[in-house]
Design a protein around this nucleic acid. Structure first.
Lengths: 287, 287
DNA sequence: GTAATAGTGTCTATAAGACAGTATTTG
DNA sequence: CAAATACTGTCTTATAGACACTATTAC
């Protein structure tokens, strides 16, 4: 190590302020199900850099005043309009990872601590103070390897691009570039979500307090982009201890297209699923 | 949101420097096997705060000059004496998570991006510039719920506490408090390591280029603190595609206490294990 | 020789998936 | 009534673990 660097380090041990500053932000990959398809919360940036581009919601951590998780919950609340009282408590929020390449923000070195959130269907997003717009965007339209007929998500009138990046009605809009390195963060978040529901009961975080097994299966199908066998899924879920517990009730209606009224369940007390629900068809893509 | 805070945010969108600074550090939970037992690299702090206490190796990220992973690799190299040339390349290094409670460092708000490293048996550690000492410390002596006879690690002459926190020869020293929140980071790192070797082939990162199945089993036994069935483990490892591949060679000697010469293997090309090697006995501790 | 180990065979319990079948509801 | 769905039964295959057995090496 060069002598100058050693001197730097020595000083820093006594006063970290001797270093050039690095800004710390939190970003949130917030996922929800709308119209049977997986959606992510995005904001349109109202200021440079990347003004006008879509980005993950996030912002600077308030030094000395909040932890990383608190900052992420605050940013999420600002964009969703939720507060702790009316449902933020039902949202699952976990840390995803930190992103700190020096050139990832043109202004200065910014380290972003990304978080991942699973939310039940929420009302339309509303822009926070520094965003021009906020919206739930269909993940299928954002992913490069999008396969339009995988899992057959119902055509959604809701999830269209609000405004920008045109494409008249009926046209599939071109997936936009996300600001900064947010495309990579989103990809990591989707990876994490897809594997996390394998071995934890967090798929239930996408649903209301009470749900049917079919609704739970719809979560897995939307997140994984795969069709699951209804009968085997049903038995499997009920056989994993602590995954779900019966409420004793039944749904008030059958399905839209017929069928008996399904029984209702709530999330159980397990934190990990034993045995896990493994994704189908991953053997060869993995090596 | 209060008007003053909105104003803060508006300005920050244009100039992040308007915020109070947060320092960014990296810390490394570096694990290795010595004398058949899991060890972690610790340093004795040579400067306040927590001067004289043991801590994870780490330091400040150099603003604008390195990514988080590069900073972690640099800090690890400084304490282990390795450089990219002579073996740092064989060390597995991944991000563990970030820790940012405002009060975790008494000097100022410091966000630490913790990393996790798996290393083959390395030479004795040597203190970096700002540490009074560095040493590989037996993990068993650091964990609260330590069970002295679990997995029967051989009594190690090497892993004793060098100096501090006395305890004469033959006495088990009291586990010391780690500086900052490093005890929690270490616990998270051990959790991650224990689950990561279930579904990835990273246990091989603790071994040399060539190894026997028994050496690989010793890694699992040391990390999990459990005894595994030799015969079933052997067959299981060979049955997972891409986990290990034969080199064609055999060990030059049998085991210390007899037995045939074992065949040699190297790490295969799989990145995930299918099916995974599940830890025994976790059903009820998990809920 | 004795003891420990490497590697393999076999049996059982469990789990996953394919498939079928019954009862219930919508339209 | 026709069609879709909720849920259960059954069969086949893959896997995990218990146990046993042989061959090989150290001392």
């Amino acid at each position: 190590m060069a002598p100058q660097q050693e001197e730097d380090r020595f000083l820093a041990a006594y006063d970290p302020r001797a270093f050039d500053p690095i800004a710390v932000t939190v970003d949130v990959v917030a996922l929800t199900l709308r119209e049977g398809a997986l959606h992510v919360l995005l904001v349109r940036r109202g200021a440079p850099p990347f003004e006008g581009a879509w980005a993950l919601p996030g912002g600077f951590v308030r030094a000395g005043r909040e932890s990383l998780g608190e900052a992420a919950a605050r940013e999420l609340a600002e964009e969703t309009g939720l507060d702790a009282a009316d449902g933020l408590g039902r949202v699952h929020l976990e840390q995803l990872g930190s992103y700190g390449r020096p050139e990832r923000d043109p202004r200065m070195h910014v380290v972003s601590v990304a978080h991942l959130a699973f939310a039940p269907d929420l009302p339309d997003a509303k822009a926070g103070s520094d965003a021009a717009a906020a919206a739930w965007i269909s993940v299928a339209e954002l992913e490069p390897g999008w396969q339009p007929d995988a899992a057959d998500p119902r055509p959604n009138e809701q999830g269209r691009w609000p405004g920008a990046h045109g494409g008249g009605p009926g046209h599939r809009p071109v997936a936009p570039e996300l600001a900064f390195d947010h495309a990579g963060i989103l990809a990591d978040g989707l990876d994490r979500a897809r594997s996390k529901i394998e071995y934890t009961p967090l798929a239930t975080a996408f649903l209301g307090e009470e749900f049917t097994i079919s609704e739970l299966r719809a979560v897995y199908e939307a997140v994984w982009g795969a069709t699951l066998h209804a009968g085997n899924f049903h038995r499997k879920v009920l056989s994993v201890p602590g995954f779900v517990e019966s409420t004793g009730g039944t749904a008030t209606h059958g399905s839209v297209r017929g069928g008996p009224r399904a029984r209702l369940y709530r999330a159980g007390d397990a934190r990990l699923l034993h045995p896990a629900l493994l994704r189908p068809d991953r053997e060869e893509t993995v090596r």
